[in-house]
């Protein structure tokens, strides 16, 4: 149970970074942390305590494997989700550079030409 609470703590840390911080780079770091939290939750849901890696070698009996091996599907899905987070972060970094070029600042309070 304690790991889930830690995941929630991590998630809210990242969310705090996204919502409360004004610097774009800190927002990007917050986005990274939130992404890791959701990936970690996904991994934990498929995890078995004291399990083994889901690789079936010839010397492992099949019953033992079924009982002990962790679920490989969440790990495959999380890999996809990591790629998506990478795309987000790479795009936001490029955007931050361009925003600095136009506005001369990383402060979200000063990047405020659109309103209404």
């Amino acid at each position: 149970m304690i790991v889930y609470i830690l995941v929630a703590l991590m998630f809210f840390t990242g969310l705090y970074g996204i919502i409360a911080k004004k610097n774009i780079i800190k927002i990007i770091v917050g986005i990274n942390i939130v992404g890791y939290a959701s990936n970690l939750l996904f991994i934990l849901l498929g995890y078995k305590w004291e399990g083994i890696a889901p690789i079936l070698t010839e010397d492992i009996p099949i019953n033992y494997f079924v009982e002990k091996a962790v679920d490989p599907l969440p790990q495959a899905l999380v890999l996809t989700s990591i790629v998506i987070d990478l795309a987000f972060v790479a795009f936001l970094a490029a955007l931050a550079i361009r925003l600095f070029e136009r506005y001369g600042t990383f402060d979200m309070d000063k990047i405020r030409r659109l309103k209404g």
């Binding site: 790479a90 970094a93 490029a94 550079i97 600095f100 070029e101 001369g104």
Partner: peptide
């Protein structure tokens, strides 16, 4: 992606920090 990001340059001038691609 990283190469394109690395092309950005910040130049310190007397008026402040400028950007150059």
């Amino acid at each position: 992606a990283i190469a394109v990001l690395s092309m950005a340059r910040l130049i310190h001038t007397k008026e402040g920090i400028k950007y150059k691609q």
